[in-house]
Amino acid sequence: MTHRNSIKSLLIVDDSRVSRMMIRTFVLAKYPQWIIIEAASGNEALEIVDRDTPNCCTMDINMPGIIGTDAAAQILAKYPGIRIAIFSSNIQQSHQTRAAALGARFVAKPVTENSVAQALEFFESNP
């Protein structure tokens, strides 16, 4: 279980500042040591990933500019090792299928302790 205690870096991608704050709060409550980076758009996320290469990432879908699932696809094509949890309030099958096809985990919004726990569980599971 050593991997559970390792310090990870997490990139939170969401155009809503409130959502980013909530994810950050719930993650830090469980893992105070983790390094958190934030991006407000898919495009910003792509830049940050090249610079900082985080271990894992939460990704909103509906954002201005490049949408989350497309950003996730680009990130995973370049860095297949990054674990991505796709957060969306839109639980239509098409989004869930796309997430699964990318090898990402779909997590239904709203951001709650429970939904963040689902993402964390995915980050810590063995690829």
Partner: peptide, 12 residues
């Protein structure tokens, strides 16, 4: 964000 989550539910 509240209303976008509502919109997501409605879309579903």
């Amino acid at each position: 964000e509240i209303f976008n989550i509502g919109a997501g539910r409605a879309a579903s």
